[in-house]
């Protein structure tokens, strides 16, 4: 099963309203400093990048390092200009991408 992503965004908003967006993703953010039960080091594997697209415009971006807690949590804001799709994209350092999106309606 793919890494779970949670997104919280209001469904309908007024034009120009500044809205809070929240996201949480299941990811160990493996730091590379831990060992497994057999004492073997667990290789580093972290999410490096988060991007939020409003339709196709990049409106917010984050760069994660090892100091970001496991199962990263993030809230940020955007001004709702039009009805559209908000796409949340996480990129792991392996290049793997985890993505989910929500729709918002501007009244």
């Amino acid at each position: 099963m793919a890494n779970n992503i949670r997104i919280a965004a209001p469904k309908t908003v007024r034009k120009g309203e500044v809205i809070e967006l929240k996201t949480l993703i299941q990811h160990a953010m493996e730091s590379g400093y831990r060992v497994d039960k057999r004492g073997e080091p667990i290789p580093r594997k972290i999410l490096q990048k988060f991007e939020c697209f409003y339709d196709d415009t990049l409106i917010f971006e984050a760069e994660f390092h090892r100091g970001v807690a496991a199962n990263p949590f993030l809230t940020f804001y955007t001004r709702a200009e039009n009805s559209g799709i908000l796409k949340f994209r996480y990129t792991e350092e392996t290049g793997e991408i985890f993505e989910d999106s929500v729709e918002i309606t501007v009244k």
């Binding site: 099963m1 779970n4 949670r6 949480l24 993703i25 299941q26 496991a70 949590f73």
Partner: peptide, 16 residues
């Protein structure tokens, strides 16, 4: 009920 990371597993359990 959003930020509690345990809900990532609860969500998965619901799907399963």
């Amino acid at each position: 009920s959003f930020a509690n990371p345990a809900f990532l597993w609860v969500d998965r359990g619901e799907t399963l």
